[in-house]
């Protein structure tokens, strides 16, 4: 089990125990964390699973992938630590990961 913390836009925190192999998006949906829509079901094709990765975790999470980059690019709220949570696979190295949720998914 890997501990992941999601912080909603209003500051509400949700810490959950996620299964390795799930994506950060899937773990949120399974644990009823609000604020992630995931309309495309994890196909990197909707951009509605947008999260901001806590700076301390940027290195561990890594850069957006080749197909993720253009999806992020068309989001007006994109920032340097933006990622699509369906493209982050959970493993032991991410134990303690903190991500923040945008006010709106777009």
């Amino acid at each position: 089990m890997t501990r992941i913390t999601y912080i909603e836009h209003d500051g509400t925190e949700h810490s959950i125990d996620a299964s390795n192999g799930d994506s950060v998006m899937e773990a949120a949906i399974k644990n009823l964390v609000p604020g992630i829509d995931a309309d495309c079901g994890g196909a990197c094709s909707c951009g509605t699973c947008h999260v901001f990765v806590d700076d301390a975790w940027l290195q561990a999470v890594g850069e957006p992938g080749e197909f993720e980059e253009p999806m992020l690019d068309i989001n007006p709220e994109r920032s340097a630590n933006s990622r699509l949570s369906c493209q982050i696979d959970i493993n032991d190295d991410l134990d303690g990961l903190v991500v923040r949720l945008p006010e709106f998914q777009f």
């Binding site: 253009p70 690019d73 068309i74 007006p76 709220e77 006010e103 709106f104 998914q105 777009f106």
Partner: peptide, 15 residues
């Protein structure tokens, strides 16, 4: 496509 879309999408962003 992304260059152009970026310039106008803010107007219909949820905020």
């Amino acid at each position: 496509h992304e260059e152009q879309r970026k310039t106008v999408q803010g107007v219909v962003a949820p905020a």
